[in-house]
Write a protein that binds this DNA or RNA. Structure first.
Lengths: 190, 190
DNA sequence: TTGCTTCCTGACCGGTCGGTCAGGAAAATG
DNA sequence: CATTTTCCTGACCGACCGGTCAGGAAGCAA
C-alpha cells in the first residue's frame, strides 16, 4: 500500500477543521470530530499540529497577513484617499477569505486568544479607527460598525453568490453607506 | 437570618448569566462560573432552572416575543410601507434588547438549538425575507444582510452610547442603506 | 541486513463539564 | 405543636475534553 504524499493528511485536516469550525464554532468542535471525519486518530492530528489552537492559527494565518498588508498600504496614502481605498480592499479581503471568516463568527469563542487571533483582533480595531476616528460622532461610529459587521455577515449569508458578483454588490452598498461616488470604487483583488 | 424574597436568587442568576453569556459565550460559560458569581451552589442553579439551556431560553424569551410581534404587525401593512416600518421597529428592537443580543454573537454556539433559539432563528429568517424577497437581486440581498448583521454589530460595539442616540444613528444609516428619505423614519419604542 | 527517521496508533491521564440525588434547614401550614 | 412544602447543599456520576506517551509499522539510507 502506497503512503500518501508528504502532507496530504495535513491539508485534509485543515479542510475538515475549517468546515467544522465554521459550522459549529471553535470550542464546539472537538479534536475527535475532526479525526472522525478525516478518518485518522486524534493523536495523528496532534502529531501534525501541536495543539487544537495551532490548527485554528494555521487557518487564519493568510487572512491576518492580508489584513496586515492592507493596513500597511493604507498608511502610505493621503488621508482623503484612505476611506475609499479601505472599502475596496476590505471587500476584496472578505471575499477572498470567506471560508476563514466564517470561523470567526463566535469571537468571544476563543477565550484566551492565541497570538495570531489576538493580532487579528488588534488589526481589526485599527481598521475601525480608519473608518471612524476615535473622536468621531456617534453616527460615524455606527456607520463604521455597521459596515464592518455587515460586510462579514453578508459574506457568510450569501455563500451561493460567486466572488465577483458579491464583491460588486458589497462595493455598491459600501458606497451608499459612506456616501461615496460609486464611480470612485473599483473591484480589486489581493 | 432572613430568607431573601421569593425569587430574588432567580433574578440574580439571570443577571449574572446574561453578563457571562455575553462576555464569554454560552458554551464557554459553565454553571460553576455562574454559581460562583451568584455565590450559591451549582445545584441551586439547577433547582431554579432545569438545565443550562433553560437559563438561556429565559434570557431570550422577551427578545423573541418582541420579534414575533414585529412580524405580526408588519403583516397587516401594505407592502410599500413594510420596509420603512421594519427599519423603525428593528432599530427599536435591537436597542431595547442590546444585552440579550450580545449573547447571540456566537450563533453556531448553541449546537443543537433549544426550541426558543430555533424560533428566534426562524423569525430572523422571516425578517430577512421582508428586507429582500427570496428572488431579489444580489445587491438587494447583500443590503439586507449588511443591515441585519450591521445593526447587531453596531449595537454591541457601541455600549457606551445611550439608547436614544444610538437609535437615531442607526435609523440614519438604515435610511442611507435602503435609500429611504430619513424624514419618513421616526424613532419608536416597543 | 541494520539502523534511523517519519508517521501514526491505542491506551491513558487529569480535569471539567452538565446534571442527579439523598437529605437537611427553614418557612409555611394545620 | 407536628407536618408539609420550599429551597438549597455536598457528594457524586458518566461523558467528554485536550493532550501525552510508549511503541509499532513503513520507507529510506548504509
Amino acid at each position: 500500500m502506497s503512503r500518501p504524499p508528504r502532507d496530504a493528511l495535513r491539508r485534509e485536516i485543515l479542510a475538515v477543521a475549517q468546515r467544522l469550525f465554521s459550522t459549529l464554532g471553535f470550542r464546539a468542535t472537538s479534536l475527535q470530530m475532526i479525526a472522525d471525519e478525516v478518518d485518522c486518530s486524534k493523536a495523528a492530528l496532534l502529531y501534525h499540529f501541536t495543539t487544537k489552537a495551532a490548527i485554528f492559527d494555521a487557518l487564519v494565518e493568510g487572512l491576518v497577513d492580508d489584513l496586515q498588508r492592507i493596513l500597511d498600504a493604507l498608511a502610505d496614502l493621503p488621508t482623503r484617499q484612505r476611506l475609499p481605498r479601505l472599502l475596496e480592499l476590505s471587500v476584496a479581503l472578505v471575499v477572498k477569505h470567506r471560508e476563514a471568516l466564517a470561523m470567526l463568527r463566535g469571537l468571544g469563542d476563543l477565550g484566551e486568544m492565541s497570538p495570531p487571533a489576538a493580532r487579528g483582533q488588534e488589526l481589526a480595531d485599527r481598521v475601525r479607527d480608519v473608518l471612524a476616528a476615535p473622536g468621531a460622532s456617534v453616527q460615524q461610529r455606527a456607520t463604521a460598525h455597521i459596515f464592518e459587521h455587515g460586510l462579514l455577515g453578508a459574506c457568510l449569508g450569501l455563500p451561493d453568490v460567486d466572488d465577483d458578483e458579491l464583491a460588486d454588490a458589497l462595493l455598491g452598498v459600501g458606497a451608499r453607506i459612506f456616501d461615496i461616488d460609486p464611480q470612485r470604487l473599483t473591484r480589486v483583488t489581493l
